[in-house]
């Protein structure tokens, strides 16, 4: 069981966290102006990289704060100290 460094609480066991998918997928500024295909890409499509991936995590059983972290999907290692999501 991995330790994940919560930026607020420090290293905690992974069972305290929930995964929130790919980071950096912003809610579109004007959804109404998007084509159906563009909207579908926002709602349903996410990258699935082999290697470093920027991800959103939440310390669900702790401080309940969201943060962004870069993790290597091949090794599960976190490559950066997580930052608070903005």
């Amino acid at each position: 069981m991995q330790l994940i460094a919560c930026p607020w609480c420090g290293p905690r066991e992974e069972t305290e966290f929930s995964f929130g998918g790919q980071a950096g997928v912003a809610y579109p500024e004007h959804p109404a102006s998007l084509t159906d295909e563009q909207w579908a890409h926002f709602v349903f499509f996410r990258d699935n990289p082999k290697g470093p991936a920027a991800e959103r995590w939440v310390h669900a059983a702790g401080c309940r704060r969201w943060f962004t972290a870069v993790r290597d999907t091949r090794t599960h290692r976190f490559l950066t100290t997580p930052e608070l999501t903005s």
Partner: peptide, 13 residues
Amino acid sequence: LDGMEEWLQTEWP
């Protein structure tokens, strides 16, 4: 509650 927090923290902080 978690869903509302997620929107609030990650999309509209």
